[in-house]
């Protein structure tokens, strides 16, 4: 009877499900903090149901057959959910591999007398379940990448604030790597703010930029040139020693741009351009 493995799975569905569920419960990687046992059981049941419904003797050796689309869909759903809930790749992988083990156990129990058949059927089951595992991983990584992509977008959205530090002086602290897309956003924000506030000085602070290569430098130069075209002066501040070294080693010419080591010195320079002075008020002791 063992060569009718699909039939065997169908008739022993309850036993399979139970065995698998017990295996998952016994596993060290059980995450009952992330998912209740009822949920786990529901997920397992859904998958086993779909599998036993679609599997038959022909398609078992064709893991890419479209018969399994329903199973793939359920797998993808479960995996995507797990990726979002914070399961590790190992935990997610073991979910499907423990199903494989359970099926193999079942095979061994029911057909131990015919070893050749047992080997051949095991190979088929392994092949099929390995394919399921690959799908699980693809989906898992895809879901994680989506999360990363969304976070990247959020970061670039919130990380380009233009601050008015003084009447007529804007500051733009740049945090993170400066690529073409971000330069565009930074430039547009800055220029628009210059028009809105009528500011004549903009300070680009790059202390939050991890590295400056020739491309980043070119983006900076572009931004400075655009500000100049608008009729405002642009100062680059927050240049760390290692960045100064890189700039010189790369042969980047920043001689036409005012650069300052810190935001404070840039601000002092800006005050100078605006003909402003900052004075400490002498406290009048008699007043107290």
């Amino acid at each position: 009877m063992i060569h009718k493995i699909a039939q065997l799975l169908k008739t022993n569905k309850a036993r399979l499900l139970d065995g698998w569920f017990q295996k998952q419960l016994a596993s060290e990687t059980l995450r009952d903090d992330l998912m209740t046992n009822d949920e786990l059981r529901a997920q397992s049941e859904e998958l086993v149901n779909a599998l036993t419904k679609t599997i038959h003797e022909e398609n078992i050796s064709q893991p890419d057959s479209s018969d399994f689309d329903e199973v793939f869909e359920i797998l993808a759903d479960i995996t995507a959910q797990r990726a979002r809930q914070g399961f590790s790749p190992r935990e997610t992988g073991l979910f499907i591999f423990s199903l494989k083990e359970t099926i193999l156990d079942l095979l061994a129990d029911l057909g131990a007398d015919d070893e050749v058949m047992l080997f051949q059927e095991s190979r088929k089951v392994s092949h099929l379940l390995d394919n399921f595992a690959i799908i699980t991983f693809e989906t898992f990584i895809k879901s994680r990448e989506e999360v990363i992509l969304r976070q990247t977008e959020e970061i670039s959205d919130i990380s380009t604030p233009v601050i008015q530090v003084w009447d007529g002086i804007l500051a733009l602290p740049i945090i993170g790597t400066l690529d073409s897309a971000r330069t565009q956003v930074v430039m547009e924000n800055l220029l628009q703010k210059i028009v809105d506030t009528g500011s004549s000085i903009a300070i680009l602070d790059i202390s939050g930029v991890p590295a400056v290569d020739s491309l980043v430098a070119q983006h900076l130069i572009k931004t400075v040139s655009a500000t100049r075209l608008m009729g405002a002066d642009c100062i680059i501040s927050g240049i760390r020693p290692e960045i100064a070294q890189t700039i010189v080693h790369l042969g980047i010419d920043l001689t036409n741009i005012v650069t300052k080591a810190s935001l404070a010195s840039a601000l002092r320079y800006a005050f100078g351009l605006q003909r402003l002075t900052v004075k400490r008020v002498e406290t009048d002791k008699k007043a107290f």
């Binding site: 565009q184 430039m187 547009e188 220029l191 628009q192 210059i194 028009v195 009528g198 500011s199 004549s200 572009k222 040139s225 655009a226 500000t227 100049r228 075209l229 608008m230 009729g231 405002a232």
Partner: peptide, 23 residues
């Protein structure tokens, strides 16, 4: 100069050297 115009000129590689600018 409007922001969009400034960006366009920069992208075209024309930084208008020798021209003074004001808001």
């Amino acid at each position: 100069m409007q922001p969009a115009v400034a960006i366009t000129l920069i992208e075209l590689g024309l930084s208008l050297k020798g021209v003074h600018t004001a808001l």
